[in-house]
C-alpha cells in the first residue's frame, strides 16, 4: 500500500527523520509511537504525500511519489483517509458538510446517502448540523474519523486520534478503528498513549513501530 525506502526528511538544515524503511501491507494494523517531537506527524505526512522526502523513495499504491503529478497525488489521497491531530475542519461548514467534503471534491456526492449511517456509527446522529467550533474534542475526533472513512479508503492514517479526549472516548474511537481493520482497511495510528496500544493489542494483531533518534524501529516486548 505505502512503502518508504531509505527515506530521510530534513527541514531548515536539520534532519528530522533518517533512513526510514516502512511497508504498510494491505489489511495490516500499525501503531507508530515515540516521544513528542520525535517525528511521528512528519512520518505520517510523508505517507500521504503532504511532505516530500529529502532523500529516499516513497511508493503510494505502487507509484513512486517522485513521479506523481499533483493530480495523481490528489487521486492517491482519495484512497487514504486521514484523521488529523487538529481535525482540520472547515469552520464555516456544518459537521455533515465537512464529513461529505471528500465525496464533494471527488464528484461522488451521489454516495452521500451513507451519511446518516456513518453519523450513527460514530454516534453523531444528533449533531449533523452543528458547526465544528460548537463540538467537543471527542465529537470532533469522531467526526474526523467519519470524514476519513466516507470514501471507503484502503488506508486510514490517524495522528494522535485520542490526544484530546478522555479514556472512555479513546476506547470508543479505537474500537471503531479496529472494526475498520477487520473490514480489511490498513490502519496506521500515531500515538504516544501506550495504554491505548496495549488495549488494542488484546483485540487486534498490531505491529508497533517506534521513532527514536530519527530512526524507525520495531518496539520491544514491553508493549
Amino acid at each position: 500500500m505505502i512503502q518508504l525506502s531509505d527515506v530521510s526528511y530534513g527541514y531548515d538544515g536539520r534532519e528530522l527523520l533518517s533512513h526510514i524503511d516502512m511497508n504498510l501491507q494491505p489489511g495490516s494494523f500499525h501503531f507508530l509511537t515515540g516521544p513528542s517531537g520525535a517525528g511521528k506527524t512528519t512520518l505520517l505526512k510523508l505517507c500521504y504525500a503532504d511532505l516530500v522526502p529529502t532523500s529516499g523513495h516513497i511508493a503510494i499504491f505502487g507509484k513512486d511519489l517522485a513521479e506523481m503529478d499533483r493530480d495523481a497525488i490528489a487521486y492517491a489521497r482519495r484512497r487514504i483517509g486521514v484523521v488529523h491531530q487538529d481535525c482540520r475542519f472547515l469552520d464555516h461548514l456544518s459537521i455533515s458538510d465537512n464529513i461529505l467534503l471528500p465525496l464533494e471534491v471527488s464528484a461522488r456526492d451521489n454516495e452521500a446517502h451513507h451519511l446518516q449511517e456513518l453519523l450513527s456509527w460514530v454516534g453523531l446522529s444528533d449533531r449533523a448540523n452543528a458547526l465544528p467550533p460548537e463540538m467537543s474534542g471527542g465529537e470532533r475526533q469522531r467526526a474526523a474519523l467519519a470524514r476519513a472513512v466516507i470514501m471507503s479508503p484502503e488506508v486510514i492514517i490517524a495522528d494522535e486520534p485520542t490526544g484530546n479526549i478522555d479514556w472512555e472516548m479513546s476506547q470508543r474511537l479505537l474500537d471503531l478503528l479496529i472494526e475498520l481493520n477487520k473490514m480489511g482497511k490498513t490502519i496506521l495510528i500515531a500515538t504516544h498513549d501506550l495504554n491505548l496500544i496495549r488495549t488494542a493489542k488484546k483485540n487486534v494483531s498490531a505491529r508497533v513501530l517506534r521513532i527514536r533518534d530519527r530512526q524507525l524501529t520495531s518496539a520491544g516486548a514491553d508493549l
Binding site: 503532504d50 493530480d71 490528489a74 487521486y75 489521497r77 475542519f89 467534503l101 471534491v105 471527488s106
Partner: peptide, 11 residues
C-alpha cells in the same frame, strides 16, 4: 485550500 487538497481535491 489546504484542507481541500488533503481530502483529495484536484487543483
Amino acid at each position: 485550500i489546504r484542507v481541500l487538497r488533503l481530502v483529495g481535491a484536484r487543483d
